[in-house]
């Protein structure tokens, strides 16, 4: 069988989701954002929500998410995406509304907006990319930076006495009455990616069923600012991030 015989439309088994357009993504090679973007694009299409989705992008590496996934978007001020989403969902209750935020945006400057939107039980989904560092600004300490981890603003490693402790926003979210589904996933392997996709689908569905707010944390890599190759970054994440940020559902009230 020749390659040409295999490469026929009827034999197609995987291609880039249609909602992910052809604009080259600005993310660094191997960045987890791209994988999560694909999953979001796939889930929106599979739910048939292409014409009814409003997404909110953050400030941080994903600020330009609106350039890549072909739905309506609003670009929020730093940390404020859940406030925008709260209003948008209440004003358009039949739309799929989600935010896409990094750890600096969500767990630091936007902690207030995040916790209150979740606690109000807004029928939205928050997708939370946690790579324990500020990517866009060049690798500074994030609220989720692990103890001992070196960043541009804790170059000798994060120390509790100097910098405080890493924040587990997802654990906090699980205690809030307004949340329906709170889960922590990752996208470093095929199995993890398929699970993460199911989690995003579940969160989006719950939000459309009016069951409350949903938080999907994706423990991610930032190989550039971690100063590792993409492959090494995935290994480092498994060894160092997963023990502190264990994967799995923290709450499923659906």
């Amino acid at each position: 069988m020749t390659k040409e015989e295999i490469i026929q439309p009827e034999n197609l088994v995987y291609k880039k989701p249609e909602l992910l357009n052809d604009t080259p993504m600005h993310y660094c090679p191997g960045c987890s954002h791209g994988v999560v973007h694909k999953l979001v694009a796939e889930v929106i299409a599979e739910m048939g929500m292409q014409e009814k989705t409003i997404a909110i992008s953050p400030v941080g590496c994903a600020v330009f998410a609106y350039k890549y996934i072909d739905v309506d978007w609003q670009e929020a001020a730093h940390g404020r995406a859940p406030a925008l989403a709260s209003a948008i969902k209440r004003l358009w209750p039949d739309r799929l509304v989600f935010t896409y935020q990094g750890d600096g945006d969500l767990a630091c400057i936007g902690t207030g907006e995040t916790i209150h939107a979740l606690n109000r039980g807004e029928n939205i989904t928050i997708i939370f990319i946690n790579n324990a560092i500020y990517g866009m600004t060049g690798g500074q300490m994030a609220p989720t930076t692990l103890l001992g981890m070196k960043t541009a603003t804790c170059p000798y490693g994060r120390e509790p006495a100097l910098h405080g402790y890493p924040l587990k926003v997802t654990e906090i979210a699980a205690t809030l009455q307004g949340t329906c589904y709170v889960t922590r996933q990752s996208v470093q392997s095929v199995a993890a990616i398929l699970k993460a996709k199911k989690a995003i689908r579940k969160a989006f569905e719950y939000s459309m069923q009016g069951k409350g707010s949903n938080l999907v944390e994706i423990v991610s890599t930032c190989n550039t600012n971690w100063r590792m190759s993409p492959v090494k970054a995935n290994q480092w994440m498994e060894e160092n991030m997963f023990p502190f940020y264990p994967l799995g559902d923290l709450k499923d009230n659906g």
Partner: peptide, 26 residues
């Protein structure tokens, strides 16, 4: 290329959606 089974693993993990996969039964 002859070792490819069309399992799509490469395409699933690709962050930039660069890989299209085809599969055919021999």
């Amino acid at each position: 290329p002859d070792a490819c089974t069309g399992c799509t693993s490469c395409a699933i993990v690709c962050p930039d959606g660069c890989i299209t996969v085809y599969r055919k039964k021999e």
